[in-house]
Simulated scan of single mutants.
Amino acid sequence: MTEDQTIVAGVRDEPLSVDEALQAVRHPQAGAVTIFVGIVRDHDGGRAGVTRLDYSAHPEAAERLTALVTSVAEGAQIHGVYAVHRVGELTVGDLAVVCAVSAEHRAEAFDAGRRLIEELKSGIPIWKRQEFDGQEHEWVGL
Rank of each mutant, 00 (worst) to 15 (best):
L65Y: 02
Q135C: 04
H105L: 03
D13T: 02
E108Y: 08
H27S: 08
A9D: 01
G10W: 02
E3S: 14
P28T: 02
H43R: 13
G46K: 11
G46P: 11
L68S: 03
E108C: 05
Q29K: 11
S102D: 03
D4N: 10
L142R: 15
D111C: 05
E20I: 08
A103M: 04
V11M: 12
D94S: 11
A48V: 01
G45C: 10
G46S: 07
A30N: 05
Q23I: 00
K121P: 00
G80S: 01
A109L: 07
S17Y: 11
H105W: 03
A30F: 03
S71Q: 13
L22I: 15
A100C: 08
R12K: 06
I7F: 02
V101K: 04
S17N: 10
I124G: 01
G113F: 02
A62G: 12
R129I: 00
R114Q: 13
G113Q: 04
A62Q: 13
P15G: 12
E14V: 14
T2D: 14
I126F: 05
G46A: 09
G45F: 13
L53F: 09
G75P: 07
E136C: 03
H85T: 01
I7R: 10
E131D: 00
R12A: 15
S17V: 10
H85I: 04
V37L: 14
E60L: 12
G49H: 05
P15F: 12
Q5H: 04
L95A: 15
Q23A: 15
R47L: 10
V98N: 12
H79S: 06
T2L: 09
R115I: 11
V98M: 11
A62I: 00
V92Y: 06
E138S: 14
A73C: 08
W139I: 11
I39C: 09
V84D: 08
R41D: 12
H85F: 03
R47E: 15
R106W: 12
E20H: 13
G31P: 10
D54S: 13
D19H: 12
H43D: 15
E89Q: 11
T51L: 09
I39D: 08
Q23R: 14
A57P: 01
V87E: 07
A100I: 11
P125K: 03
C99I: 07
V69W: 09
E20P: 03
E89F: 05
A103Y: 03
R64A: 14
S71F: 01
M1I: 06
E20Q: 14
S122N: 04
G141P: 08
I117T: 04
Y55P: 07
